[in-house]
Design a binder for these strands. Structure first.
Lengths: 251, 251
DNA sequence: CTTAGTCTATCGATCGTTTGGACAAATAAC
DNA sequence: GTTATTTGTCCAAACGATCGATAGACTAAG
């Protein structure tokens, strides 16, 4: 229960490397990523306020002050996690929607993109979803604006579909319901569960279309009636460097 | 920025009352409720770990140690909030389902009950939804079990409907999607928004039935095709004494 | 030799919790 | 009906532990 450091002989020697890197600069980048991944893991598990900087440093196998070389405060650590996460979420969505015109296909596409991202990066997504309340000041405004912009994409897809008769008009709550149920994937998805990511995306696209009462020429639209984006492509776009793929070694 | 107490002259005199009560015992109950409501408000706003006991005491207008007269620890405060919340959520659901047999009507009923509860008690519901990770030990097990039992009710409704052909088979994920989208109501619902609670319940029942592809004799089921529980009844059952109906005065 | 990167050690502030009464309402004694 | 005693409720002050953050020494790569 040492307060200062509890992995005494286990720490790598001074200036030691996490992975053999060529230059010092490459090594520095590795360390920063390692710290962000560890922070993401802990934030997702215990929440931002429930995680101490010593928890992060210990789990990452570095000294507390080494963290402050990369981030000038704990809040900045959270900011980095949220910014990187939202950036990839938004850009992967935009790219996937780029050349899709039909409202039903657009809805299926944005659902699939969103679900793929949240299933592939559950911890980072959880942090972005849960820890918004821990942000303050300008950062909070920025992140909020980015999230609003993303939700506006969903809104316009829905209203376009309502306007041309593809969807039933279910009001503003439809967007909120769709976002909640797809974002929720991050909270329960397990890689070795019932469904793999491609099937999961298709299933959610199906449920989303059904929820909106999607139809063409009087016939209800199923997921198999619309072109779904290629899942491999979705997963490549959703790749997030700070998502921790395994439990921190020092935990 | 006094550390000990920041509402100096504003506090009521020693032994003063929040509301005029008859007996001392009645007064004590009022104070306990007042503390739980204040805690619920702050937990929902800043999270459990983001809320200090001094924050709660100050917002409630009592001394820190007065809190320890009612709860022997901060964790016990959270426990009380979550237990009371889940108890009402579960029992109101059970009561509403008591004499409903048809799967489609049961789904609509449980959705309406869930949505009504989350719209009426958003802060307590948010705490129960978000702060589970802050629980430890036996309490965590208990709450988890209660939540699992509640979700099992949903599962059996869905599988009954799938079995008799009312619903399409959308696997386990359907339950998770439905629960996420309905629980999410607590995060965005505002009393003066687009919809009042009765309309909100109906809308969600509609979306839920659509999501499950509910149909009878080949015809798709709408919300108007099934009997929805009386919303006034739902709201009475969902009444939660610890839900803070207004911002704490000392905030 | 310079400096990027990491260390140990420590800071003041705040954390959850405890102590030892103060005081009023309820009860008992007269 | 007044006074004394007990009980229930709450407070101010302080405790040790832990919090986020910093200072300054040291190492090794460039």
């Amino acid at each position: 229960m040492a307060t200062t450091n509890q992995n005494g002989g286990n720490r790598r020697p001074r200036g030691g490397r996490i992975r053999a890197g060529s230059s010092r600069r490459a090594q520095s980048e590795q360390t920063e990523l390692h710290l962000l991944r560890t922070a993401t893991w802990l934030f997702s598990e215990r929440g931002f306020h429930g995680t101490g900087i010593r928890d992060i440093a210990d789990a990452a196998g570095v000294a507390v002050s080494a963290m402050y070389y990369y981030a000038s405060s704990k809040d900045e650590l959270l900011e980095a996690v949220m910014r990187r996460t939202l950036d990839v979420l938004v850009s992967s969505g935009e790219e996937t929607l780029r050349d899709v015109a039909d409202p039903a296909e657009r809805l299926a596409a944005v659902i699939a993109s969103h679900v793929a991202f949240h299933a592939r990066n559950p911890r980072a997504a959880k942090v972005a979803d849960h820890e918004f309340h821990a942000l303050t000041g300008q950062v909070r405004q920025d992140i909020l604006q980015q999230r609003d912009a993303y939700e506006t994409v969903w809104s316009s897809i829905l209203s376009a579909g309502v306007h041309d008769g593809t969807f039933k008009d279910r009001g503003t709550v439809a967007r909120l319901a769709l976002l909640q149920m797809t974002t929720g994937v991050a909270h329960w998805y397990r890689p070795h569960g019932e469904l793999k990511i491609p099937q999961l995306c298709e299933r959610f696209a199906e449920m989303g279309l059904a929820l909106m009462g999607a139809s063409r020429e009087g016939r209800a639209l199923e997921a198999c009636d619309v072109n779904l984006p290629d899942t491999q492509l979705l997963l490549r776009r959703a790749e997030l460097t700070i998502e921790p793929r395994e439990k921190p070694t020092g935990l």
